[in-house]
């Protein structure tokens, strides 16, 4: 079913953090403790789940070329898409304001530990990215927009949860001083991103040709195990001018 496919696609294949690197700033800064990461992740899921469908409606009935046709046929010519950014940002900022108020009321400790990063969700590339992708990929229905929003949020949540868990664990590891903190986090995230690339074999093929491609071996990379450096096998076909590479992960 379309919805289920889109759902899994947005969590694993188009993962906001590992595939498109959106929302990295708050991801890197807030991932020191699992508890805060969970709080921020939940907030991101909520904001995405609300803003993507809302912005879909805006795009359908206000911004797209010809969207204003419902007002009257003379308006069908208008193309307000240049206002997309501003309108999307406005909905996002409003939603975030709402979330801020709710969090402050129900969990002041979470509110304090998130600090500046709660209002910064509004600028979080992931949130705006969610709406912009929804627009550029021309997601056809409100239901799918909702699925996409929730899925993307969950993907981001998984990523930040994983890295926070790992960072908590490596506090007791012997990381070289200059790599401590930010440096090692970057490298670990890079390794996790490589791991997530293995999901690219899942659900490949266009809409019409779903079953034609054989799916590559899906390596279920348990996120807790990502601290071990994976052995990456890079076969470079020596004659290709566009280096066609095969990245196989050896782990079964």
């Amino acid at each position: 079913m379309e919805h289920i496919e889109l759902f899994f696609k947005s969590i694993f294949i188009d993962n906001m953090v590992f595939a498109t690197f959106l929302g990295m700033c708050s991801y890197l800064a807030v991932s020191k403790k699992v508890a805060t990461a969970v709080g921020l992740g939940a907030a991101v899921i909520f904001v995405l789940a609300v803003t993507v469908p809302l912005n879909w409606l805006l795009d359908q009935y206000l911004l797209q070329e010809g969207a204003l046709a419902w007002l009257g046929s003379e308006y069908a010519e208008y193309d307000l898409s240049f206002l997309s950014f501003i309108m999307f940002i406005a909905t996002i900022a409003t939603m975030v304001q709402l979330v801020e108020i709710i969090v402050e009321k129900f969990s002041p400790s979470l509110y304090n530990s998130l600090g500046i990063f709660l209002p910064l969700i509004a600028v979080n590339c992931a949130i705006l990215g969610g709406s912009l992708f929804m627009q550029s990929r021309e997601i056809p229905s409100l239901g799918l927009a909702l699925t996409y929003g929730v899925g993307s949020g969950i993907g981001w949540f998984l990523a930040i949860l994983a890295i926070a868990a790992i960072r908590e664990k490596i506090r007791y590891s012997n990381v070289p001083p200059a790599l401590r903190g930010l440096g090692i986090t970057f490298i670990i995230t890079g390794l996790m991103a490589i791991g997530f690339m293995s999901f690219g074999g899942m659900l490949t093929g266009g809409d019409e040709e779903k079953k034609e491609k054989t799916t590559e071996v899906i390596v279920s990379s348990k996120l807790e195990k990502s601290t071990e450096v994976k052995k990456i096998d890079i076969n470079e076909k020596s004659d290709t001018k566009e280096v066609a590479e095969n990245i196989k992960e050896i782990e079964k």
Partner: peptide
């Protein structure tokens, strides 16, 4: 990715090399 024909000498194979 498996075409392996960087100068694209085979024009009847319905394939071209992919980009890394």
């Amino acid at each position: 990715k498996s075409n392996n024909d960087p100068k694209n000498e085979d024009k009847m194979d319905n394939q071209v090399d992919a980009i890394a």
